Amino acid sequence: MCDTAETDLYAVLGASPSDSLQQLRHRYQQLALQYHPDRLGGQCSSEAESGVKKFLEVDAAWRVLGDQNSRKQYDLQRRAQELKQDWPVDSTVYLEDMTWDQDGCVYTYSCRCGGGFNVSSAEVEEETQTRHQDDEEEETCRGVVVCCDTCSLSVCVTWSLHRKTQTWCQ
């Protein structure tokens, strides 16, 4: 799974994240037959070489997406990478304006689409500690960009570094 950060494995298979395991297997089998080195034996070396390269990409994608656990891990990594991208920020939300959900140990804020923005107390604490360690200067405010769980909007959630966050979650 070393190249998965740069390569979209679903795109390699011509599939989407919502496809079932059977649909992924079907796409893999089609592409494996198309690009298998035994089928490309009579072609010129550059075509055969690119075919082998494509076959290896398809095979690597299937190894990750064909296993339920590795697919779940890959999907989580994809989601984390998406959240790190530079999104247009719709607005700034102050942590104290968010609702604390004791059951989920998260701060929530409603999006205009009906979805929500969620920040866990662990994320707030981790980001606050990182800021304290990284910056010795007097900065009193910290923020993270949080994407809506249903649409493409994002907000910058800010809070005071000296603010006490909810810590009774496990």
Rank of each mutant, 00 (worst) to 15 (best):
C151P: 08
D90F: 05
E123H: 04
C105Q: 07
Q22K: 04
Q68M: 14
W87R: 09
T108M: 05
E57V: 07
G66F: 00
C113L: 06
V119A: 06
L24A: 00
Q43E: 14
L56E: 14
S110V: 03
T150H: 10
L76A: 14
A61G: 06
Y10S: 01
W168A: 10
D75G: 00
P17R: 05
W62I: 04
L9K: 01
Q77W: 05
T150V: 13
K72G: 00
P37H: 14
D67A: 09
E127H: 09
V58H: 01
D19G: 01
T7M: 04
Y10N: 02
E57G: 05
L33K: 15
E49D: 12
E6S: 12
T99G: 09
G143N: 08
D149I: 09
D59C: 01
P17N: 06
D101T: 08
G114E: 12
D101I: 09
M98Q: 08
V144G: 04
A32H: 06
Q85W: 04
L24I: 02
E49G: 07
C111V: 07
D101E: 13
W62T: 08
C156M: 08
W100F: 11
T158K: 12
C2D: 07
R79S: 06
T150Q: 15
S70T: 13
L153S: 11
G115W: 02
G51F: 01
Y107A: 01
Q85I: 13
C151F: 05
V106H: 10
R78D: 04
Q73N: 13
K53M: 15
D59V: 03
T7P: 02
L56V: 07
T130D: 11
E123S: 14
G51I: 07
H36F: 02
S50V: 07
G143Y: 01
P37E: 14
Q30D: 08
K53S: 15
E136Y: 11
T140W: 11
K54M: 10
Q77G: 11
T130R: 13
E6Y: 06
E139I: 12
F55R: 03
C156F: 01
C111Y: 03
T7R: 03
C2E: 07
T128S: 14
G104L: 05
E127I: 11
Y107C: 01
C156S: 11
S16P: 02
G14Y: 10
Y109H: 15
Q77D: 14
C169A: 13
V58N: 04
H26V: 08
Y28V: 02
C44H: 10
Y107K: 03
L65V: 05
W62C: 05
C147H: 04
L161N: 13
V58I: 09
C2F: 03
C151I: 06
G42P: 05
A80C: 13
R112I: 05
A122I: 10
